[in-house]
Simulated assay, not measured.
Amino acid sequence: MAAAVAPATGNPSDDNPVLALILRIAGIAAFGTMAMFIKLASESGIHIVEIVFWRQAVSVPILLGWAMLAGGLSTLRTARPRSHAIRAGYGLVGMAFNFGGVILLPLAEATTFNFTSSIWAVILSATLLGEHVGKWRWSAVIAGFAGVLVIAQPGGGHVPLVGALVALGGAFMLALISIQIRDLSRTDKPMVIVFWFAFTSVVVTAPVLPFVATEHTSTQWLILLGIGLAGTAGQVLVTLALRYGEVSSVIVMDYSGLIWATLYGWLIFATLPTVWTWLGAPLVVLAGIIITWRESILRRRRLRDRHEVIGG
């Protein structure tokens, strides 16, 4: 369940493709671990609002500490509080949908539906940004949704329809948030964007806690701590990966999340993906890879054209 993160702005001299891949894989493993803890928390009776609160509350002091080491609290200043507020609102809705998908579905199915965020991003780029989308990416969109239909088997009953819709809604929100983050990253650093989302989430969800929180056992507290630590680690690691490698070269590693989802599903929850998931997931993954490949080509083409115009 990779969170949408801002593109890092490291220097070309920082490029280290191998380190970038390792960091991305580690970040996706952390997100897979977070998803496992979320499911455990829900099954133990913890309300989703409290799960969201602690996911972000654990992050805030960690991010503050990181900011202090990186130059002080002044590094968290922003001139766009309204944009951050909108991003936080969308982010909270997206987090609720994504966590809901994990709670309502087996981990492998929830993770696979999460992969459709790249498919939704293509649709949003065409409809909201007016970007021209060619046959390659539209073909990928069709293949991806065909995979979703194979997995969900509408009317088949092996995947709850509500759970599938919730997970797809979460993927849609990730795509929508990625557009916002792309805009915010023009003026603010990744640390600033991540911090204000976490801080705002805590402020918004804290007043609801008295109505949903219950007494917890020591095991439940450890699970909530695990959600916060794993989620923060995942966010930091995938962001660092973008500092040392191109988006197009590391984002394919996101599909390793299906390995962790399958492993945790088997070891912790005694569930394995159905045959329909094994048949449909490759279509969803292939669609994402095609979209990433095509966008990488288009990006290089735009850069080349820009250089020709400047040099011409």
Rank of each mutant, 00 (worst) to 15 (best):
A2Q: 09
A3H: 09
A4T: 08
A6W: 04
G10R: 01
D14N: 10
L21T: 08
I22D: 02
L23Y: 10
I25H: 02
G32H: 04
A35P: 04
F37L: 12
I38R: 00
I38Q: 01
G45F: 03
V49A: 15
I51P: 01
F53Y: 12
W54A: 04
V58S: 11
V60P: 10
V60G: 05
P61R: 07
L64C: 10
G65M: 11
G72E: 04
L73E: 07
T75P: 11
L76H: 02
R77C: 08
A79M: 13
P81F: 10
R82E: 14
R82I: 15
A85R: 05
R87I: 06
G89S: 09
V93W: 02
M95C: 07
M95P: 00
G101P: 05
V102Q: 01
L107I: 12
T111I: 09
F115P: 05
F115Y: 15
T116R: 11
I119H: 01
V122I: 14
L124F: 11
T127D: 07
L128Q: 12
L129E: 02
K135R: 14
K135S: 10
K135M: 15
K135E: 10
W136I: 13
A140K: 02
A143L: 15
A143W: 00
G144N: 06
V148C: 07
G156R: 11
V159H: 03
V159P: 06
G163A: 13
A164Y: 06
V166E: 07
F172Q: 05
L176M: 14
S178G: 08
Q180I: 03
D183H: 14
L184E: 04
K189M: 12
M191G: 10
I193V: 12
V194R: 03
F195D: 01
F195N: 02
F197S: 00
S201G: 13
A206H: 03
F211P: 01
V212C: 00
V212H: 04
E215S: 13
H216M: 13
H216F: 07
S218Y: 09
S218H: 14
L222C: 09
L222Y: 06
I223C: 01
I227N: 01
G231C: 08
Q235F: 07
Q235R: 10
V236W: 12
V238C: 11
V238F: 14
Y244D: 07
E246T: 13
D254C: 05
G257L: 08
A261S: 12
L263T: 06
L263D: 02
G265R: 04
G265V: 05
W266Y: 13
W266I: 09
T274R: 04
V275M: 12
W276L: 15
T277A: 13
L279S: 02
G280V: 08
V284Y: 05
V285S: 05
A287T: 05
I291W: 01
I291P: 04
I297F: 13
I297D: 09
L298S: 06
R302F: 12
L303V: 10
L303E: 15
